[in-house]
Simulated scan of single mutants.
Amino acid sequence: MKIIFTDYPLVLLPSIVQAGMIYYPIIAVLGIFANVISIVILSRGKCGLSKCVSRYLVAMAAADLLVAVIDVLLYRLNHLYFPETFLFITQVCAFHRALNHAVTDISVWLTLSFTSDRYLMICCHKLRSRFCTEKTAARVIATVCPLFCCKNIPWYFAFEPILLVHNVAWGCNVKQEFFIEPTWIFFTWIHRCFSPLLPMFLILLLNALTVGHILMASRIRKNLRGSMNGANQNDAEMESRRKSIILLFAISGNFIMMWMTYFIYFLWTQITKRYYITGFSDPLLIADETSYMLLLLSCCTNTCIYAVTQSKFREELKSGMKYLPR
């Protein structure tokens, strides 16, 4: 039914398969470990972040943890190392594919939600007291998760079995009508627009507006403080704003970089109208796999971002490391 890569020495496998068999186990371990650590530390509320920000970051870490488990561990590694498990029963496989798309969408839109919250907090003084609250963050998270689970239900019906074994359907093959029926084509475009086209555009737009607002506010504030006797004193508000901006730009910038290759690959396939793969050395397959490798890397990079940009997060991490068995 499938090529069992583990039946062959690693050096005899195609290069892209070798890369996957080495890369995905590392990403699975790092993604699960890093996000569990992030959830524990951020949930303690001792990182000097507001409850609203902490709520978003914990939700983002939980979504990334699900991506690491559902996509990397149960999908990528399962295909490479265990190609004949019950996960390849057609109904299970189709449900897994739909769930895979759902958790990816949730991760993307929580990143956008966090970016939007920081934009309102920094640029919209009249709205921040109303929307930049822990209660609003909880409502947004509670809306995003079920909404994108429902949005991805059609994926369950996009697959058909590859073969029957003792009257049991095995494998997941995309139906032929998925590529030609207007309904499925419309659904595909809606799916791509919601992840990642629209989020990428909105994140870039909100960050540009935030940068413009900060530059203008900083210029005005410096002019006002320059005319006062306390001009040489530290500006606590600007320092707090600077830390918030570093965190925001690091997270959203990481998102853009990790998704850019996937975005370019998608545009290329739409322009050339080529959707088939001719073999393991096909540049289209290499581009596709590379885009997913970068995309899935994003599920374990946010913890590194927290550690680099947040001194109190580093302190909590160091404190926790003392209790690990030696």
Rank of each mutant, 00 (worst) to 15 (best):
R326W: 06
F255H: 13
R241G: 11
A208N: 09
N207E: 14
K222S: 07
L164P: 04
I22D: 06
R97E: 04
I185Q: 07
A208Y: 06
A137C: 04
K51E: 09
F148P: 00
L163K: 12
L80R: 04
V36F: 02
T104L: 11
T278D: 05
V168M: 04
Q18M: 09
L77M: 15
F187G: 00
A142H: 06
K46R: 15
Y156M: 15
S240A: 13
R225L: 14
S38F: 10
V165F: 04
S298H: 10
L66N: 02
W184K: 03
P14C: 04
T210G: 05
Q233N: 05
A68M: 04
T269E: 10
K322Q: 13
F33M: 06
F255N: 00
P283T: 02
Y265F: 12
A94R: 09
S298F: 05
T111D: 07
N254P: 12
K222C: 07
I26A: 14
F186C: 07
A138M: 13
S43D: 15
I26F: 10
T309H: 07
A169L: 07
W109R: 00
R219D: 06
D117A: 15
M238K: 07
H79S: 11
I122G: 01
E134L: 08
Q176G: 09
Y265K: 11
K126Y: 01
P182N: 11
Y276V: 07
P25Y: 00
A236K: 14
G226F: 01
L65V: 06
F82Q: 03
L99D: 11
M238L: 06
L30R: 01
T143D: 11
N234Q: 10
K135N: 10
P9T: 05
Y23S: 05
T188H: 08
V58I: 13
Q233Y: 03
V11D: 12
K2A: 14
A142T: 13
S227Q: 14
G253A: 12
N100R: 15
L112K: 02
F159R: 02
S38N: 11
F249C: 09
W155Q: 03
M260F: 11
N302V: 02
E177K: 12
V108G: 00
E237L: 13
C300H: 03
F82T: 09
R225F: 08
A59R: 00
A61C: 11
Y276K: 09
